[in-house]
């Protein structure tokens, strides 16, 4: 049996991210920490999406809706005078969880491409609803003038140590996803992915397991939205566009489906490639688009395959 190298790879990534700001900060590259934060925020949302796509076989094309909802929950809460980040996070989790529950009950009546189209439609609905919130900036979004405080301190702000807050949350989400994938719940989810009828015959309610996964994934994406808003000090409906949902799926496929490390590696790869290409030419999408086509046509298993054998729960 091949030893599972995933925790070692993950540990290395986390340790590197832990020391990165010191190294990068010393040579005066605050811009690079910004880049890393963007990648980590994407990685959190992608880790959540992997629970659906990689583990559950539910291809959702509307996952950025939850990111947008989380961000707007923070923004609207701040406008209403709530300053505690913990309370705002709870509100955001409740909002995104409830939205996931309602849309999940409807979308999970179907599967496959129907599920994909329906999640895409609900994502678009969220986007247009956010653009019509005239009181909160509408199309243009909303700049946040005062930020939420963590237990009365500015630790979770750009003035403080938000980099490490994001890193801690990402590690925690990685750990949660790792535990879920090892648990009975994760095994049932994968069983239902590979053969829903068999799981059903064995007495599992596939619908309930999938719905639970959908709500968990939605809430974590909402959490990613809270941190994104807190870091950008700005929210806009652009967070919930369907292109953003597509980016999350790209991250998963490039990183390798069904692997926690893949979601993180994919996020860093996509952010860095977009940024490098963007620095070389403003029309970087002319290269990025065909690159995606080529990845789909020729690369199987993603980046994670390069770093070790498949983790448990990867798609064979």
């Amino acid at each position: 049996m091949v030893r599972d190298r995933a925790p070692i790879v993950a540990g290395t990534i986390f340790a590197l991210l832990m020391v990165a700001p010191f190294g990068l900060g010393l040579i005066g590259q605050g811009y690079l920490t910004g880049l890393l934060m963007r990648a980590m925020l994407l990685a959190i949302a992608a880790l959540a999406l992997d629970l659906l796509v990689g583990q559950g076989g539910m291809v959702s094309f509307g996952h950025s809706a939850f990111v947008g909802l989380g961000a707007y929950a923070l923004a609207i809460g701040l406008q209403a005078g709530i300053e505690s980040l913990l309370l705002l996070t709870l509100i955001a989790l409740a909002v995104s969880g409830l939205f996931a529950l309602i849309t999940g009950v409807l979308a999970l009546r179907t599967s496959g491409v129907y599920f994909l189209m329906i999640t895409l439609a609900f994502g678009q609905m969220t986007y247009f609803t956010l653009t019509s919130l005239a009181a909160y900036g509408g199309d243009d979004g909303l700049t946040l003038w005062s930020m939420a405080t963590l237990l009365g301190t500015d630790v979770a702000q750009n003035a403080g140590q938000i980099y490490f807050v994001i890193l801690v949350v990402m590690v925690a989400v990685w750990w949660l996803m790792h535990c879920i994938s090892q648990s009975r719940f994760g095994r049932v989810l994968r069983g239902a992915r590979d053969n829903p009828e068999r799981a059903e015959v064995m007495g599992f309610s596939v619908f309930r397991y999938r719905l639970t996964a959908y709500v968990i994934a939605g809430m974590i994406a909402g959490l990613a939205g809270v941190l994104t808003a807190q870091q950008n000090e700005f929210v806009s409906p652009a967070l919930a566009t369907w292109q953003h949902s597509g980016d999350l799926l790209v991250i998963l496929v490039i990183g390798g489906l069904g692997s926690r490390n893949g979601a993180i590696l994919g996020a860093f790869f996509v952010v860095i490639v977009q940024d490098l290409l963007g620095a070389v030419m403003p029309e970087w999408r002319l290269i990025y688009g065909p690159l995606l086509v080529l990845v789909v046509l020729f690369a199987k298993g993603g980046l994670n395959r390069l770093l070790g054998p498949a983790q448990t729960g990867s798609v064979a």
Binding site: V53, V59, F61, G112, V113, L116, Q243, G246, L249, V250, V253, L257, E283, R285, L286, Y288, G289, P290, L291, L292, V293, V295, V296, L297
Partner: peptide
């Protein structure tokens, strides 16, 4: 080359084409 493939592959490849053509139109 995508007919027999997973729907996720089809979605991502065509997503790449959208990104390319939208940018091409802009250029």
């Amino acid at each position: 080359h995508l007919y027999g493939r997973d729907h996720l592959d089809q979605v991502l490849a065509t997503f790449g084409i959208i990104i390319f053509l939208n940018e091409l139109a802009k250029v």
